[in-house]
Structures are given as C-alpha cells and as structure tokens.
C-alpha cells in the first residue's frame, strides 16, 4: 500500500489552501530562543538513556518512526518534546518495558485533583 508522505516529511511543502488550492509556503522562520524547561531536559536525557549507550531499549530509527506515526494533526500542534514524550510512551509499551495500565495508573495518581 502506498501512502501519503508522513506529516514529518515537509521539505518544500506548502501549507493551508485545502481543496480550493492556494497553499502557500510556511511563513517567516520563528526566531525566538527558548530556554528548555526542566521537564524537556529530562525527556531529552531519558531519550539518551533509553535510545543510546549501553541500556538500549530502542534505536533512533524506532524513535523517529514513533514520532512520525503520531496523528498528523498532532505532529505540528504538539511541541518538540511533547512529541518526544508521546513517542517514548509508545515505544516503552511496544517494547514491553512498561504496560499501558502502569502508565495510566501512575498518571491518575499524579494528576492534580
């Protein structure tokens, strides 16, 4: 089955337009610098610990594949590390390191009431 390129494959892509056409190049490159939040640094670190080095749970191509498999509407509405943490969640369950029930249970316990 041939599909459309994934949402990540955007070299030269024009956006918007829809059925009537008129899609345009994306706008100006956003130039704001952002200081990484502590949780973003931790996602980056977890990714390195899981995807690199000795304790390899998955490889970088699996991480990329997981990110690309996010629903297209999520790919650009989520921030970079939001996509990464979703991909980590997906891979940890896929690899049998964690179960969905464990993650959901912990999330429920952490969620502010």
């Amino acid at each position: 089955m041939a599909g459309m390129p994934g949402p990540h494959d955007i070299g030269g892509k024009k956006f918007g337009g829809g059925q009537g056409g008129g899609a345009k190049n994306a706008g100006a490159v956003p130039r704001g610098e952002h200081v990484f939040a502590a949780w973003e640094n931790r996602v980056d670190a977890m990714q390195r610990l899981l995807g690199g080095g000795g304790r390899k749970v998955y490889c970088i191509d699996e991480l990329r594949r997981a990110i690309e498999s996010l629903p297209p509407k999520d790919y650009f509405s989520l921030t970079y590390y939001e996509r990464w943490v979703r991909a980590l969640d997906m891979l940890l369950v896929e690899k049998g390191v964690l179960t969905r029930a464990e993650i959901d249970g912990r999330l429920a316990a952490l969620r502010p009431r």
Partner: peptide, 14 residues
Amino acid sequence: TGDPPGHIRTPAYL
C-alpha cells in the same frame, strides 16, 4: 519514485 509505507529517510521532494 513511490511512497512505500513505513519509515523512509528519502525525502518526498527528491
């Protein structure tokens, strides 16, 4: 050409 499913590192625009 072609667009097989899966994880492809050849960008579509090329």
